[in-house]
């Protein structure tokens, strides 16, 4: 009989892992808490750095996970994994139990809850939105203020909830910078007359063609970059947003009125991942993500044999890295199941 592998989390990592597992001949069950698989990909409109539609990646993932050999179970949140000899017993929120010979945990990330950074006024001021909200607007094809008008000046704040000790996140989410640049360009695409200002601490453009995208944003789209973290946002009498920052390169405080402020929410360990990890005895690091057995040559291995990690449940990753990481997890599963 074929060995059965359970993949927890139907985002990019989970879908890729499931597809690759089937190729090698395993029976796969893919659990997804939402009603359909795809994860954050479903919410994103276009991807950096080439602005290809996210639906293309989704299509690829749907293709490799459809058909015989993969059971996709949606609307189920897995809460616990218990090992019994060579069997893993997996239980969901409702108490149903499933068994598996190996498990891949691909619980992914949550976007930082921007309301926690109260000084930015998310949830308080109407026109403070997050990067995810903006993607939604792109998808709908209209960038508008709450009162229906079109914004003329838009601020983008980098590092919201990342590199922020006060929020308990010392790490860099590493994708927000390039997301900001991508979204700045898209705003200019949609609203050619709008002015866009990115407020950054450091521009971390460390991926393939990221720096080029940054240059394109400046050169072709006229996006403005101001080196200074926004410290405070308030609302003016006519409902515009007053942002306070320091232009650290000019060495002067900077006050600016914008119509809309976009917060580049960072990546955090997902709530489901936290629950699952803590109830199953999976080790987590200071950054709350799962802590792999070895950061160099065991980044998919957990502290429990037979349970492997794929994707952003271990650290912030882009889609390319996530897919590679998921494939690597499959290698570990093959090796493990050969031994047992």
């Amino acid at each position: 009989m074929n060995k059965h592998v359970v993949v927890i989390g139907g985002g990019v990592a989970g879908m890729e892992a499931a597809g690759q597992l089937r190729k090698t001949g395993f029976e796969v069950s893919l659990f997804e808490k939402e009603e359909k698989p795809g994860g954050h990909l479903n919410k994103w409109y276009k991807l950096f750095p080439d602005r290809r539609p996210s639906s293309e990646v989704k299509e690829y993932l749907d293709n490799i996970t459809s058909g015989e050999g993969i059971k996709i179970i949606t609307g189920k949140t897995i809460e616990k994994i218990v090992q019994n000899k060579n069997q893993f017993h997996i239980s969901d929120k409702e108490g149903s139990e499933y068994t598996a010979d190996a498990v891949i945990v691909a619980t992914g990330f949550d976007l930082f809850k921007s309301a926690r950074k109260e000084e930015y006024g998310y949830g308080i001021y109407d026109n403070v939105i997050t990067s995810a909200d903006l993607e939604e607007m792109f998808r709908k094809g209209s960038i508008t203020l709450v009162n229906g008008r079109t914004p003329e000046t838009i601020g983008i704040v980098h590092c919201v909830g990342s590199r922020d000790e006060k929020m308990g996140n010392l790490y860099c989410s590493k994708l927000c910078c390039v997301t900001a640049v991508k979204q700045a360009i898209e705003i200019r695409e949609h609203l050619p007359s709008a002015k866009v200002f990115c407020f950054y601490m450091d521009m971390r453009m460390g991926g393939a063609y990221y720096e080029e995208l940054y240059r394109e944003a400046q050169e072709e789209w006229g996006v403005n970059f101001i080196r200074g973290k926004v410290s405070e946002v308030s609302e003016s009498i006519n409902n515009r947003l007053v942002i306070k920052s320091e232009d650290t390169l000019a060495g002067k405080p900077l006050k600016m009125l914008v119509d809309m402020l976009v917060l580049m929410a960072g990546m955090e360990m997902s709530e489901e991942g936290l629950k699952l990890g803590d109830s199953s005895g999976l080790k987590r690091g200071d950054n709350r993500f799962f802590s792999p057995a070895d950061h160099h040559f065991g980044s998919n291995k957990s502290n429990l044999k037979g349970i492997y990690y794929a994707g952003t449940c271990t650290m912030p990753m882009n889609i390319t890295e996530t897919i590679s990481h998921a494939r690597a997890a499959v290698m570990d599963v093959i090796e493990y199941l050969k031994e047992s």
Partner: peptide
């Protein structure tokens, strides 16, 4: 890391060119 948050929010900075970061 010279992000300038301190000087941006600064009460004194409201009145003078005082910048703690600087």
């Amino acid at each position: 890391i010279e992000c300038g948050c301190c000087s941006a929010t600064c009460t004194t900075g409201n009145f003078t060119s005082f910048s703690l970061r600087e």
